[in-house]
């Protein structure tokens, strides 16, 4: 049979999915033990036991200096910034995206501006943010929002403009106004698609968050990673990176689940 027609049975499929993870872990283990055998004080590839120590120290013990559990404090600080930035960008996507996609006058007014603005490299304006709104939370949240809002807005505008003309005309012939078309047709059809584009922007959102935290913060996952870098503390950095990845992955899975629960019609509608 052709390769493209061979399907793994469901159990084997899951096992296959695990293989690359196991492979990376094994490769790390081998590399780590080789280096540690040559030089027991090597810091580059710590043994798993050192990770356990570091995780225990960071995530389950109160810090003697601050009295906080550092990883917990870092996680809360980072997630607050991330969610605030995502919320602002999502709101902008809904308002501007629908406006630009649906209303010709607003498209003429704002379409070009948003297209131009989205070309500004967000990290290049980080210094401007620090200068204008200070080193506090506002700068970090603004960076995330400014970084991911333009692609969200443009994606939303394109998708709204892609709604078949017949659907809009149909709503008009049923007596809808512009506002009720937005409320009863455009928004319900766009929200599940918005969840898709938020999923795609989660990666950039984390990127901007960590970049901002690396430069100026008192707490946060990115802040911690860049702080302990000075001591080459790979035993802390790698668990933090894994933790960030896990958080991002959970958010992605959560958005998929939300989409499926809240918009049961969407999976079929997208396929057709």
């Amino acid at each position: 049979m052709r390769l493209i027609n061979l399907r793994p049975p469901s159990g084997a499929g899951r096992l296959l999915a695990l293989l690359p993870f196991i492979f990376v872990a094994l490769a790390y283990l081998v590399g780590s033990s080789v280096r540690l055998a040559a030089n027991p004080s090597d810091k580059l590839l710590p043994a798993f036991a050192s990770f356990a120590d570091a995780i225990n120290r960071m995530a389950f013990t109160t810090d003697t200096r601050t009295g906080d559990v550092l990883m917990w404090v870092d996680t809360v600080a980072s997630l607050e910034r991330l969610f605030a930035g995502l919320a602002i960008a999502t709101l902008a996507a809904v308002v501007l995206g629908v406006a630009i996609g649906l209303v010709p006058y607003l498209r003429s007014l704002l379409g070009g501006f948003v297209a131009a603005f989205s070309m500004v490299p967000p990290l290049a304006i980080l210094p401007i943010l620090f200068i204008t709104v200070g080193l506090g939370e506002a700068a970090k949240i603004t960076l995330i929002a400014i970084g991911i809002a333009p692609p969200l807005v443009r994606d939303m505008a394109l998708r709204v403009a892609d709604i078949p003309r017949q659907q809009i005309v149909k709503a008009e012939t049923l007596g809808a106004s512009t506002w009720t078309i937005v409320l009863r047709l455009v928004l319900p059809q766009m929200l599940p698609r918005l969840l898709d584009s938020i999923r795609l922007q989660l990666g950039p959102a984390w990127l901007f968050l960590i970049a901002a935290e690396a430069i100026a913060a008192e707490a946060g996952l990115g802040y911690r990673i860049f702080l302990v870098r000075r001591y080459l503390a790979m035993d802390v950095i790698l668990p933090y990176v894994a933790w960030i990845t896990l958080l991002a992955f959970i958010m992605d899975v959560g958005l998929v689940a939300l989409q499926r629960r809240a918009f049961p019609w969407f999976a079929d509608a997208r396929a057709s």
Binding site: P164, Q166, Q167, V169, K170, A171, E172, T173, L174, G175, A176, T180, R184, L185, P188, Q189, F263, W265, F266, D268, A269, S272
Partner: peptide, 29 residues
Amino acid sequence: TADRGVVFQRYSVFSHLTVLGNVLMGADL
């Protein structure tokens, strides 16, 4: 406007609404 109703060959119904929801749109709007 609502004085002229229409059925197209495709895309005439709203995929996010049930059968009842689709028909109710005429009253809702």
